[in-house]
Write a protein that binds this DNA or RNA. Structure first.
Lengths: 190, 190
DNA sequence: AATTTGATTAATGTTACAATAATCAAATGA
DNA sequence: TCATTTGATTATTGTAACATTAATCAAATT
């Protein structure tokens, strides 16, 4: 039942310009594949209600409100602060699993620098944990404490320093050798 | 002077995949005309961000005092009587000076590795401390959080990574730039 | 040994296209 | 008469295609 009498060219016919979801014309641009989702979310995000406010601690009695998205040039892409203030953190809870068997050791010197344990770092040692090959352990050899990576050489245990400049130590039967625990963490003050 | 003896099909010929300015494949997407410039700037700006989640100190942390030993003292412990050697320590107290102005940020990537800040470390940031040149700071650049070393060059602030593979960032007037605090410590779990 | 050259393939900005959606007015039907 | 349907028209929108540029390799040349 087609006829030629409906429609037809006439001014004002057809979809109105600006009736798309952006209310304006569009262009195609090329962007990295990994950021397609991010950009699509961003350009579709309601502009009006964009009032993300993050509260961060401040020494003054009343906490300061820091407004994000007040950029001068590129306006408001998703910021890490958007949804990233998640939870609170208790350092004791985070770093100490078993407080009954945990203690700290303050490190002197740079012999563990390749395991990124530095002079004056404090390491967290759990003496209840069974040391496995590859673990960073606190051991004593002939009455001296040392922090090393546990390896195994035939049947005798072997301690690898994390710093290449130091020689591995093969534990002989005659040596007093004791593993005091496994290093489970490290903390540092700047 | 054309001949058919150069080039020719052979494995490995031609431009390498991923050699473009994004280091990955691209796609075309349609965006509002008014935001083309903004998005092009955004996807091309230096990726300074090296932080992940932001956390606040726990309001009611566990109080755990554990023994602190010195790496260099001769083994013979535990010797609870010896107060000279043995101290005790609470990690929250040790690392957090001002709870009201402190928060935590998780590090992503290895841009600060020479400052011994590693992937997945958590750094402690004090917002009340005045940042000085040379300090490790948390800053935001155009909405992106980053941990960097604060420097100054010709009166413009500069953010230096602690890894020669990364480029310093010169802060221009046109950039949104804010210093959020000074990094006062770092913790790591093994 | 260093440089040039031509073939090859990826990157990149733009245009083209097809499918969908919105809009209008004539045609239809109550 | 007035609401609904219908067909033509035009914008939107995601994707494919294209042309130009850039990077890379190995043979040819200096």
């Amino acid at each position: 039942m087609k006829d030629n009498k409906r429609g037809g060219f006439r001014v004002g016919a057809g979809r109105k310009s600006g009736s798309g979801c952006f209310g304006e014309s569009t262009k195609v641009i090329r962007v990295p594949t990994s950021r397609v989702t991010e950009i699509n979310q961003y350009i579709r995000r309601p502009q009006a209600g964009n009032t993300d406010i993050v509260m961060l601690p401040h020494p003054t009695p009343q906490k300061i409100q820091l407004k994000l998205f007040d950029h001068k040039v590129p306006a408001g892409f998703p910021s890490p602060a958007d949804d990233h203030i998640e939870k609170s953190l208790d350092l004791n809870e985070y770093l100490i699993t078993k407080k009954e068997s945990t203690f700290f050791v303050k490190i002197k010197g740079d012999s563990m620098i390749d395991a990124s344990i530095h002079d004056n770092d404090i390491v967290i040692v759990d003496r209840s944990k069974q040391a496995k090959v590859g673990d960073i352990i606190l051991a004593s050899i002939d009455g001296e404490f040392t922090i090393k990576i546990l390896a195994k050489h035939l049947s005798l245990p072997r301690l690898l320093p994390a710093n290449e400049k130091y020689q591995p130590i093969v534990i002989q039967e005659s040596m007093q050798f004791e593993i005091w625990g496994v290093v489970t963490g490290a903390v540092r003050k700047f």
